[in-house]
Write a protein that binds this DNA or RNA. Sequence first.
DNA 1: CAATATTACGCGCCGCGTAAGGATC
DNA 2: GATCCTTACGCGGCGCGTAATATTG
Lengths: 298, 298
Amino acid sequence: MELRALRYFVAVAEERHIGRAADRLRMTQPPLSRAMHRLEADLGATLFDRTPAGVELTEAGRIAYEDARVLLEHADRLEARVRSTAGRSTLAVGSLADTAELVGGRIVPAFREAHPHVAVRVHESDLGDPSAGLRAGLVDVALTRLPFTDTGLRTHVLRTEPVGIVVRDDDPLAGESAVRLAELPGRRWVRLPPDTDRVWTDYWTAPALPDDHQTPVRTIQECLQAVLWNGMSALAPLDQVIPAGLVTVPVADRPPSGLVLAWPAAGPSPLVRSFVRLAAATYRRREARGHRGAVGRT
Amino acid sequence: MELRALRYFVAVAEERHIGRAADRLRMTQPPLSRAMHRLEADLGATLFDRTPAGVELTEAGRIAYEDARVLLEHADRLEARVRSTAGRSTLAVGSLADTAELVGGRIVPAFREAHPHVAVRVHESDLGDPSAGLRAGLVDVALTRLPFTDTGLRTHVLRTEPVGIVVRDDDPLAGESAVRLAELPGRRWVRLPPDTDRVWTDYWTAPALPDDHQTPVRTIQECLQAVLWNGMSALAPLDQVIPAGLVTVPVADRPPSGLVLAWPAAGPSPLVRSFVRLAAATYRRREARGHRGAVGRT
DNA sequence: CAATATTACGCGCCGCGTAAGGATC
DNA sequence: GATCCTTACGCGGCGCGTAATATTG
């Protein structure tokens, strides 16, 4: 007997209808029906009389319902008390430039739902810090992109995405289906700030011309404007949304980049573990929903 | 947060040592360690300070421990109350002749542990009733062997076992590694009672000689004695233990027989479901342990 | 025949085990 | 270096979804 089954049971007992209870629980009937059968088996007692109109509680079911409600409230109190006793209840999340939407849109709300008592602060950092504030100790966990120097950090890959070269749509390359960086001499590349992690800059930029004195860019917007107005080139993930007038041409000789969660390797706090866990689940679910929308629909 | 995790947590909190708690819970350290990390993540609080000598409860851990103990007692009370409210608390288990040892040895004890309040009665039936009392309404669930007429019943195969012909060790066949029934004319076969299920008799016996008036056998013992003293032949599962003086020669042209659980198809009671579930798990575990014992051992 | 509960089946997560690694006294 | 706890990795069960079936008014 697990709390999950009891939460389900309370919903069914109150709705007197497995289908409606399933709606309330945001799931479908079959698993709920089986969960109730299994709960009955665990308890060794019949909790419902099934009818074509729904279900009715048996005497044992009524007892179970009363006790289950109290038990679940007790469990909620346990959670609340432990949480209020725990010291730190704040989590700083770093987000690298273009990943902010993902963090703010789905992941942080999911985390807030699981941990309502925690104050979440999102720190959006610029292209000069691939650790998104981790190195500076500004944040506890970060959503960023590989590759960068990850000593002392742990990472979890959410997705890998090929990269492309961003050019104006009147650029000779604009019509190509794919290009190789090795065959593109003489371009002027957008540059990152000089003190930026080498692994990171080596990946996202090509060698600059010796006489190149461009101003480094710190944000996606600056980067795209440099391409649009100054005729420069930049590398970006293929899934990066691009304003009109620009196109991203896939680059064949650069390995894909990983969208990752990162956090300090030394003793991550429970909140960080939970964030990583929830973020991974949320992201997966988002992915699955996308697929289903594109394929399913009888 | 699930009750399982809280039960684990209480053990760790009391032992102040994950390894010892794991022993107490009959499991190994790693999954217990992870379960505690996950519980901490779910709660968003650190419950232990890990030290090289074991673990110490934090303040939040002490709160959690106190609450968890009460919560688990509450859960136990819920179970007890529901069970005492439920009507029927008796289960009749049918067992076909040679399967009694398996039922009594492991499965029924496992069920008794899960349902201490239920009075279990084992009904050992003879070879004339492959349903082991189900057809007669004597039992709620049965452990028996396929094949037999299973209309109105549901079955769950625990294992399939090839069959062989049982002969005296001075029989000309005794040395063969396998035989085909189609090539064995003129044998005198042990017979089952005349009113026995046809599917069952067709499987376990070969066509009798016209002038054969043997007394039918009702038990394994009678069957083996008929082979030993009257020079008859019988079919039996290869795993059937055989007394000295007899051997079982594999039969090539008979499909294997299934060791199965069977129960009425119409509205099985929660206890029956639970029995099937536990029996399947127990049997699986027994199997795995056997394999491990034969292979493992670093 | 409409509405409900149930079974069948495939997939992904999670829990558990074994084996290897790391930290701390 | 011994003794913990932790991570890595592979496997089996279980929960969930979709699709199909049974049952009942």
